[in-house]
Structures are given as C-alpha cells and as structure tokens.
C-alpha cells in the first residue's frame, strides 16, 4: 500500500511545486520586480572610529562613557523616549554612589505618577531609587520607542544607534532622479540607516549640545557613541557578568572534557 500510494503522493506534491515554480518563473521573467530606493540606498550600520569597548568576548563597559551616555539620554533623548525597564537603582552599576542615585531619582523631571487611594486623583511624587524610569508620553508625530532594549531589538544594535544618530543627511539628488516617488515626505527626515530611509525623529544631536563634566569634547560623534554605549548597557546590564561567568565555565568544561576523553580512551583500551 505504502509503496503504491507513496510515489503517487510524492509526484502530486512535486507536480504542484513545479507548477508554482513555472508560474512564478514566468512572472519573474515577464515583469521583473523593480528595484526599490530602500534596496539601493539603505546602509548597513557601522561602529564609531575607535570601536566599542564592550564588543568581543573580553569586552567591558567603559564606566565614564556610560555616565556620559546617561547624560545624553537625560538631556536629549528622555524628552521623548522612555527607558521603562531600567530602574534608578540600576544606575549604581555606572559608578554612581547611593546618594548620587538617590539625587538623580529625586531630581528626575518626569515624576512618578500615583493615584491617591482616597480621592482617586492622579498625583505625582518624586522618584525613588526603587522606581523604574517613568514612562514618557509623546503627543507629536511618530511613536518614539522605549529605548531600554533598543540595542537588542535591532540587528547590530549599538552600531545601529550610533550610525542612525550620526547618519542624517539631505536626500541624495540621484535617489530622487531614479525614484521620483520616494521623496521624503514632509515631517519626516532622510536617514540611510533607518529601515525605510525616512524617520519621524529630527536629527537629535548637534555638536556641543551637552557639556560633559569630565571635559570630553561633546562632538556629535562622541555623544552618539556614548549614548549607544549607554543603551547597550540598559539592554544587557548583566553583560560583563555573563562574559566573566562564561570564561570560568568554559575553562572548567575544557579541563573536564580533556579528562573525559582520557578516561574514555583508558576504558576503551581494554577492547581495542
């Protein structure tokens, strides 16, 4: 039975597939899919010049850079973007003392929202270290995403954030000539690193937009790299511990596996 019906079923699927193939191939030849502006002009993200300190199997965060990046988030990004999965207490990992964390939380301009249990009125209070960064509500065009996980939510996340922030430019004239329909709509901004080339966020960074406490010159590239590093930390705060644990585990496993191999050879020596 199986030997009779099996080949028939197989041929049925094969013919159906080849039919689909034929139809698709003829269509592809007759009307080849036209190239799109995205296919031609979208760019892959790249690292900042000296590279990120946290990349690679031994990579570590640069605490000073994370603090600078936090400053950029605080002074620029936090106007529109939430950071909801991060708590103020987490900032201790950037090298802030308990008192500094407490002050950052208390002075954070976006206050924690609470409902008075007696009146039901919505009121607000100062943030405390145990609080998460309060959600930011944005009324303008576009939906600014929460940035807590953004570097894990994009391919090559840290590079993407850096490239995007430094990649704003005028739409190339050639692009308009070749794809007249792809002109950047009003209210959007051309950025070759953005998935569809046109982003709702205006270029957020300009040279010297913030003043760094440690004297680092606040070029656009510097701020973009710093905030990309900070957002890598927010997405994966346990990265250093992960790599550290990884090396210890691999070292142990390597030794154990060598021993297991020797033991296996020992035991099998008896029958070979």
């Amino acid at each position: 039975m199986v030997r009779l019906f099996g080949p028939l079923v197989g041929l049925f699927f094969a013919v159906a597939l080849l039919w689909s193939f034929g139809v698709g191939a003829i269509q592809a030849i007759r009307e080849p899919e036209p190239a799109t502006a995205v296919q031609v002009y979208h760019l892959a993200p790249h690292e900042p010049e000296p590279g990120f300190s946290f990349n690679g199997a031994f990579g570590k965060f640069d605490r000073a850079q994370l603090q600078r990046g936090f400053q950029v988030y605080k002074e620029v990004c936090s106007n529109c973007h939430s950071l909801h999965f991060v708590a103020f207490r987490d900032l201790a990992a950037l090298g802030y003392s308990e008192a500094e964390v407490k002050a950052i939380a208390k002075d954070w301009s976006n206050k924690a929202k609470v409902v008075d249990p007696k009146t039901g009125d919505e009121t607000q209070r100062d943030n405390v270290p145990a609080d998460h960064f309060p959600k930011v509500y944005y009324a303008g065009t576009g939906n600014p995403p929460d940035l807590s996980l953004v570097t894990k939510a994009r391919h090559e996340g840290p590079e993407y954030v850096y490239s995007l922030l430094t990649g704003y430019q005028d739409q190339p004239a050639e692009l308009l000539k070749r794809f007249p329909d792809s002109k950047t709509p009003d209210g959007l901004y051309y950025n070759p690193y953005f998935a569809n080339l046109n982003i709702a966020m205006p270029a957020p960074l300009a040279d010297d937009q913030v003043t760094y406490g440690d004297g680092t010159k606040a070029t656009k590239q510097q701020m973009a790299a710093d905030v990309a590093a900070f957002l890598t930390w927010t997405a994966e705060p346990k990265m250093e511990k992960r790599k550290q644990t990884g090396w210890a585990v691999l070292g142990f496993l390597l030794a154990a596996t060598v021993l297991a191999y020797l033991a296996k050879r020992n035991i099998w020596a008896r029958v070979h």
């Binding site: 199997a57 992960r242 790599k243 644990t245 990884g246 090396w247 585990v249 691999l250 496993l253 390597l254 154990a256 596996t257 297991a260 191999y261 033991a263 296996k264 020992n266 035991i267 099998w268």
Partner: peptide, 22 residues
C-alpha cells in the same frame, strides 16, 4: 565514558553560545 566525553564537547559548544552569543 564515550557519552561523557561527547557531553563535554557538547557543553563547550552550548556554553559558548549561551555566554558569548546568547
């Protein structure tokens, strides 16, 4: 014994993914 050795090799590859390319 042979499975023990195989398990070691497997664990090395698996932990490399887990800790360095999760």
């Amino acid at each position: 014994a042979k499975d023990g050795f195989g398990l070691g090799v497997f664990a090395i590859l698996y932990c490399t993914m887990l800790f360095f390319l999760p």
